[in-house]
Amino acid sequence: MTHDTRLGFDRETLAQRVVFAPGAAASRLADELRRLGGTRVLLVAGSAEAELADRLTADLATRPGAGAGPVVVGVFDAVRPHVPVAVAEAARATAAETGAEVLLSVGGGSTTGTAKAVALTTGLPVLAVPTTYAGSEATPVWGLTEHGRKRTGVDPVVLPRTVLYDADLTATLPVGLAAASGLNALAHAVDALWAPRVDPVDTVLAGETVRVLAEGLRALVADPDGPGAPAARDRCLYGAHLSAVVFASAGSGLHHKVCHVLGGAHDLPHADTHAVVLPHVLAFNAPAAPEAARRVAEALGDRDAVAGLVALARDLGAPTALRDLRGPDGTRMREADLAPDAALVAEAAPPSNPRPVAPADAEQLLRAAWAGTDPRGDGER
């Protein structure tokens, strides 16, 4: 090891209040809303989270004039994956019509993304209560989809001012969805290792994130109803937060560019897409990023990073082929889509990626992910 290379980097730390409160989200909610200053609350929660959101907000006033505390003045539930522009516009209109002063997001990444879309144009503060491991709640990244293309951007105004984490709220996640959502979080950490703004702090956090998530997810999937499940959920949610912190700092690497193309073009399920694609991006980049691969392997407790990630996905029962995924309307990605998608991936690939990404490279990667081919080159998994 040499010591003659000086260490230098730029890093920004995001201003956000983070509250981990196992089993206490409902009792802490009103106080956290008061901290944000406004009392007129627009609740953003998809239909799947409606019952949970109702329970969480049961102690809040539901009509103006019902007291000095926070008041739920409206509900927006037309949440869609990848935040279509039309959905964003409808949510913004609801915020304006209700005179909302604070946005309360209860749900996964699509729900948080919808609240962010409102904050982007209104500047309203967001309090996020995550129910999955998506991680959007801890990043200043927004995303909107229109005409089959997903565009993203970074703006500090969309970063939720407060995140209220309660792992008990993830207890109703089906095991398969929890596994895929956890692998989505893990992808943030792995992709950060070669992302455009990665720094030494990110690399340390990324390794710890992979380790925490792998341990938590394995424990949760092995015995989702056992006595150790609450602690496993705590670790998974903590790992998801770490992953988002790393992603927010390091930026979007090749893996996320691939998934943004696929999500925008085919409306594929977000977490499942990340779970399928990640081992293939890791296999593509690992030869040109040996230090990143070493950190991933070490965190997974394996001699080889790709083998360790494949083993984790297998243990979790995660999906392995893009051709098996269905969009909300039941359609699947076709083999004929691979070439045009590959061209978009090559165009979007960050210049900082450890190796160049030509359209042919991108198509080979996508073809393997579409077919479910073992990224180690040993045939289908």
Rank of each mutant, 00 (worst) to 15 (best):
T331Y: 02
G308L: 11
D225T: 15
Y238L: 07
V85K: 10
E380R: 15
A244L: 12
A185C: 12
G38Y: 05
L104F: 01
D191T: 11
P375R: 12
A134L: 03
E335G: 11
V190W: 07
S243P: 06
G251Y: 09
D31T: 11
A167M: 00
Y165I: 03
R235F: 02
T121S: 00
V87L: 06
A78Y: 13
A336H: 05
A21F: 04
G251D: 14
C236D: 04
E51H: 05
R161E: 01
W194G: 14
D272H: 08
K150F: 06
P290I: 14
A360N: 07
A305N: 06
V306Q: 12
R55T: 06
A185K: 10
A313I: 08
A307K: 05
G67S: 08
S47Q: 15
P350G: 07
T203V: 15
T170N: 08
P354M: 10
G38V: 07
V198A: 15
R34M: 05
E49M: 02
S27R: 15
L278V: 05
G113V: 01
G317L: 12
A349Q: 09
E51Q: 07
A248K: 10
S110A: 09
P319Q: 13
L282V: 06
A297I: 09
A244G: 15
R376H: 08
